Computed example of a mutant assay.
Amino acid sequence: MNTAEPHTSSMLGDDSPTTPWPQALEALDTADTYWLSTVCPDGRPHVVPLLGIVLDGTFHFCMWAGSRAGRNLAADPRCVVAVNAGGIDLSVEGRAGIVRDDATLRRVAERYLDVYDWPVEVRDGAFHAEGAPTAGPGPYDVHAVAPAVAFGYGSQTGDYNPTRWRF
């Protein structure tokens, strides 16, 4: 994701008001659980819950390369991240790319510590850490999602009209 404002349109096919992307991005940043969908080599979908953070308008998550989702992303970076947060159901379709830049990895690590109280060591372009038994043994690659399109639907308050964002 990025800080540039995407093209926004109503999915109702009329001039209904749309949700501004910064408002949707804020909801994405406050979610408790993220659902990542990837594509298996045989075309089957694969969905897993994960922890993630938003940094500089971009969604990041970490994944053990040997996990099913990690292997799927290595073969095909297309993915969907879905959440329910801040009164909006949000899905973001895009491509996940591995982050190797130490400065960015350190900033992502700081956010993981702040948000999840999970200390990680940045080494050799990856996260090295204890305490993620369901995520595999590590090290963990950090991925950044470059969005293509996102969809938002009001889920609790009705304040959000169905909105499409194209990047």
Rank of each mutant, 00 (worst) to 15 (best):
A146R: 15
A146H: 11
D117P: 00
S91F: 04
R95W: 13
A146K: 10
H128Q: 09
D89A: 15
E93K: 08
A103P: 01
R107Q: 07
A144M: 06
F151D: 06
I88R: 09
T104K: 12
A146Q: 10
T104A: 12
G154S: 07
A126I: 08
D117S: 08
R107Y: 05
E121N: 08
A109K: 02
A126M: 05
I98Q: 04
A96C: 08
R95K: 13
F127Y: 08
P139I: 10
D117C: 12
R107M: 05
V115C: 03
N84C: 10
R100L: 00
S155E: 03
P119Q: 07
V83S: 01
S155F: 06
A132R: 10
P139H: 00
Y112E: 05
A150R: 06
T157Y: 09
A146D: 11
A144K: 03
G87K: 03
E130L: 09
A109Q: 07
D141E: 10
V81Y: 02
W118P: 02
A103F: 02
A132D: 11
W118N: 03
A132G: 06
G158H: 01
V115K: 06
V92H: 06
I88D: 03
E93Q: 14
G86L: 14
G136R: 05
D102R: 12
R107N: 01
P147W: 08
A85T: 12
L113F: 14
D114W: 05
D114L: 06
A129S: 11
Y112P: 10
A135M: 14
A144I: 10
Q156A: 11
I88T: 10
A150T: 13
A135H: 13
E110T: 15
Y160Q: 04
Q156E: 13
V99P: 00
A135R: 08
A82D: 00
A135D: 10
Y153L: 15
L113E: 14
G97M: 02
V120F: 00
R111I: 11
A150Y: 10
F127T: 01
L105G: 02
V120Q: 05
A126S: 11
R95I: 11
E121C: 02
P137W: 06
G97P: 01
Y112Q: 04
D117R: 14
I88S: 07
R95T: 15
D101S: 06
A109N: 01
V81A: 02
D141F: 02
R100E: 11
G154K: 00
A144L: 05
E93F: 14
D89S: 13
A103G: 05
L90W: 12
Y116F: 15
P119L: 03
L105V: 07
V83K: 01
Y140V: 09
T104G: 04
G152N: 02
P119N: 03
E110S: 15
G136N: 08
V120T: 13
G152D: 02
V115W: 09
R111E: 13
D89C: 13
Y112C: 10
V99R: 00
D102P: 01
S155R: 14
P147D: 11
H128W: 12
W118I: 08
V120L: 07
H128C: 00
I98P: 00
A148G: 08
A85P: 08
A150N: 08
D102W: 01
D141S: 11
A109H: 03
I98D: 00
D89F: 15
D141R: 12
Q156M: 07
G152P: 06
Y160E: 07
A96G: 14
